[in-house]
């Protein structure tokens, strides 16, 4: 693994505050290696420790490691020794009108302090209201008041964690009447005002573009790609309840779709290589299947980089 780490280190290129926004974040920026990574699942703990597979980095959901002790934290400690780590929150509810849950934020901060991950990210969504947790990522309207609120919450997260965070774009199923700007305008403003980076989920972009009828490529073009510190790739499902209207669901339960691979290549051709994660959260496959998807991401990145070289010559 030692050789592996030094190669990774050479590929690391942090999302810098200078490129990303006017705000300066004290503490670290996201600096995962610019290659494929996979989500870390309990089903694969022992296999990973035994075989030390060549994986660029692992990502965990913060909420699965907030217990007092026990095997999950012990495994994470062992695996983290050998691999770069991304901690990805799914329950911070950044878009909550009620404000952030201070206790939850403190627990996440303790986790981040303990494992010192290369990256911390959260979603542009809300999942808690009136002290109830909904276990789903719910949409916010895009307007100035919500922008102010989200900026305030991201400031609080970044101050508490003493680092830059990455904000992930949602998958959309509906449009909201109170929106006065596009999602990409909203994200641009947030990045500029808070100095946070972006976690660009290209599957979410594809799903949203189909569901809400806009161009996925244009969406990508409108983002500040310099500020993308990580990319997510995942499989989606199709809701077949109405044959007349294609409706996609962000399911994370299967291989990445061909159209999403194309969008990934399109993105990389504009952004250059990025840390790219294979997400798979339901019907968890073998580690071999996960790694095969990761290799596809690495090959796509290599092909795009090769094309860029040809163009440069």
């Amino acid at each position: 693994m030692n050789n592996q780490r030094s190669i990774n280190a050479a590929l690391v290129s942090p999302v810098t505050d200078e490129r990303c926004g006017r705000r300066t974040i004290s503490g670290g920026s996201s600096c995962l290696p610019r290659r494929g990574g996979v989500c870390l699942k309990p089903q694969h703990y022992d296999e990973i420790l035994k075989q030390s597979p060549d994986v660029g980095w692992f990502e965990v959901h913060a909420e699965n490691y907030l217990g007092a002790g026990g095997p999950p934290l012990r495994y994470l400690e062992l695996i983290r020794r050998d691999y770069p780590l991304s901690v990805h929150g799914v329950g911070m509810s950044i878009g909550s009108a009620d404000g952030l849950d201070a206790r939850h934020l403190q627990r996440v901060a303790a986790l981040v302090d303990r494992f010192e991950p290369e990256s911390f990210s959260e979603h542009l969504a809300w999942s808690t209201h009136d002290s109830e947790f909904f276990s789903d990522l719910l949409p916010v309207p895009y307007n100035k008041a919500v922008e102010d609120l989200v900026c305030e919450h991201i400031d609080l997260v970044q101050t508490t964690l003493k680092r830059q965070m990455l904000l992930e774009n949602p998958s959309n199923y509906l449009s909201l009447e109170n929106s006065t700007m596009s999602e990409t305008a909203f994200l641009n403003n947030i990045v500029r005002r808070t100095g946070c980076g972006l976690l660009l989920d290209v599957n979410n972009v594809y799903v949203s573009a189909i569901n809400c009828d806009y161009s996925a490529e244009e969406y990508i073009n409108e983002l500040p790609l310099d500020c993308v510190g990580e990319i997510h790739l995942a499989g989606h499902a199709t809701d077949n309840s109405d044959p007349d209207e294609l409706l996609l669901i962000d399911a994370h339960d299967r291989e990445v779709a061909d159209q999403v691979w194309s969008l990934f290549e399109y993105t990389l051709s504009h952004s250059g290589p990025r840390p790219s994660l294979i997400e798979w959260d339901a019907s968890i496959p073998s580690l071999t299947t996960l790694l095969a998807e990761m290799h596809k991401a690495d090959s796509a990145a290599n092909i795009v980089a090769g094309d860029a070289n040809v163009i440069a010559r």
Partner: peptide, 9 residues
């Protein structure tokens, strides 16, 4: 009894 915390465990 809906959940009150995002920690599902």
């Amino acid at each position: 009894t809906p959940p009150r915390s995002p920690v599902m465990a």
